[in-house]
Nucleic acid binder design. Structure first.
Lengths: 203, 203
DNA sequence: CTTAATAAGAAACCAATAGTATCTTATACG
DNA sequence: CGTATAAGATACTATTGGTTTCTTATTAAG
């Protein structure tokens, strides 16, 4: 009855896909090895040999997806705007898109019981994405400076990260972020804030 | 061997306490009825009769805690500050305290697989806390207006909620919010933003 | 081409435990 | 004091997560 056997990368890819499907549809609590094996049309031992917990598998599956869809990174945007405002909107829009490729479902993974090293892996992923976000804002601010809109060398990292964190909060909670919210963020929060820091710099 | 039997509220309180203890120490995945029964020193049927899932029990236990510790609500603050800045800092500090009484552990509950009605209950809790947060900011802005600092009738709800959401994001992710971050939020973000909306109103 | 090493998959098995049913008896209330 | 109600003990069942063993397809080496 056993005709073909997948191995190596091909097999693992099928397992990752099954993992993500379960994660999307039912969340982490429902992610068990037997279920993954069935959905990936392989056998339990294959899974058990490779990962030592459903959580570890979940992380691996997510990282695999990140590797696959390496697009949408906010630090690789080709800016088309002619103002600080345009650039900021562009970054934020792009950010929302790239966040949506991971569903909120993956977020459950973040907040579940994690072991020490699992938590560490998680923290690393978060740190990495923070680095990317900051560099995107840096590029935007540089462009603004070249346009002589403002000079904001002393914007803190915390401030740079704020818009991303606010957006992530909404995506976590599955709250819609429409254009109205986004322009509010850019026009009423970010730009006034940058300008304020700029003014202060001059004083 | 059975001497005394607790009933009604007394019994339920013990169950809630046990539930919270497990939630704190091991998270939602570890919350099972048998374990709760053992920890609360009662029997499984007692639990099974009352709740139909560990998740439902978790929600009930959290709501019970909210009811018990009805203090720390940001809308009941007795303001002592003499400026918009002072008031804002006070609200945010209070908010952090009240959020900390719930650990991040509770957050895992929010993000786990929820049924329809469970999700509804959750949304209601979030909406309620949003209402409270908005009313706190409203009071602060009113006071600012009376002081003739600024008039900001047309601040949107989204903008009013932003600081709370940002803080919650950090508390979710177990990130420290020190005084430096807090003053950054108030001085470099909120006040400039309110002032900007104020200016715009005048134009 | 043959053969040996490797790893996938099938299947049976074990152990833990979530959930249920039954029965006894403490407690509350009329 | 008697009856209804609900707590708690206990035993049982059924599910299922995890393990072990063995067969065999696949790959790589000789």
């Amino acid at each position: 009855m056993t005709q073909k056997r997948r191995r190596g990368t091909e097999l693992e890819e099928a397992i990752y896909q099954a993992t993500r499907e379960i994660l999307d549809k039912e969340g982490l609590p429902a992610l068990t090895f037997p279920k993954v094996a069935e959905m990936a049309e392989t056998s339990k031992p294959v899974i058990y040999r490779r990962w030592h917990s459903p959580f570890a598998l979940a992380i691996a599956a997510i990282q695999d997806k990140i590797k696959l869809e390496n697009n949408g990174r906010t630090d690789e945007i080709k800016f088309t705007g002619n103002s600080l405002r345009d650039d900021l909107l562009q970054v934020m829009q792009r950010f929302i898109v790239s966040m949506n490729t991971f569903g909120k479902s993956y977020m459950s993974v973040f907040f579940s019981g994690m072991s020490e090293q699992e938590n560490e892996a998680m923290q690393k992923m978060i740190m990495e994405s923070a680095r990317i976000d900051v560099s995107a804002i840096d590029r935007v601010l540089e462009r603004a400076q070249k346009r002589n809109e403002l000079s904001v060398i002393n914007v803190t990292n915390d401030l740079k990260l704020l818009p991303f964190e606010w957006l992530r909060y909404h995506l976590f909670l599955n709250k819609k972020v429409d254009n109205k919210k986004l322009t509010m963020l850019v026009d009423d929060v970010l730009i006034p804030s940058y300008q304020h820091v700029f003014q202060n710099r001059l004083k």
